[in-house]
Write a protein that binds this DNA or RNA. Structure first.
Lengths: 100, 100
DNA sequence: TATATATTTGGTAATATAGCCAAATATATG
DNA sequence: CATATATTTGGCTATATTACCAAATATATA
């Protein structure tokens, strides 16, 4: 495998890895319903502010979410909604063990 | 979040996490082209036999691949091809930074 | 300006992951 | 049966991840 192919694989794996944590996946699915500020996500997730903030930073670095600071709050939105269509596939994996 | 919702999230995150490693993602994309034995994957990946075997075990536990032992060889196949359709989305994330 | 609120950053400890080697297991073949 | 090949498992070390706390930063408001 050449360097270019390898770096594409690496980049894709990075996105998938970002989604591969229960808290981050939860956040992504919550953001699918609309913009949320960090404080809302903290309440929903039930973890420390710093923990949620770090998960959000990681998602942002992976290119999955974007942030928008307005006043003293930071609002996060899902940058790549196509990810959600994939969830049906993942769900199929865990429910029936296969998909089309 | 209730226990049931939590365990669904956990299961989905497990699948995504399994895909979130360059070597495993490479294996999945290779299996998308057809069945491969471990020895072929070892050559393609260029890592130790035991390393590849462990990645395959992890993918199997996540429900992504299945194995079939024939003779002294073990052949792996992709169990959930719908995962591949998702790759276009992931690729969009890393190339253009957004998707529809 | 002082203070409260929202968020991020730094530090740290516990746990998980990845990769290699060596050993074990299974199957085929001489 | 002995040996070679294919694969997995166990053990180990290095590295990465996660979560919390405390401190720093930024912004709003009294």
């Amino acid at each position: 495998m050449d360097d270019r192919a390898q770096s594409i694989i690496d980049a894709k794996a990075k996105v998938l890895k970002a989604l591969g944590h229960p808290t981050r996946l939860f956040i992504v699915e919550e953001l699918a319903r609309g913009e949320r500020c960090v404080c809302e996500l903290v309440k929903l997730v039930g973890a420390d502010f710093s923990t949620v903030s770090k998960h959000l930073t990681l998602l942002k670095n992976a290119g999955v979410v974007q942030d928008d600071k307005r006043g003293q709050m930071v609002y996060y939105t899902l940058k790549v909604p196509c990810i959600l269509r994939f969830m049906d596939c993942i769900e199929a994996v865990i429910v029936s063990g296969s998909c089309k």
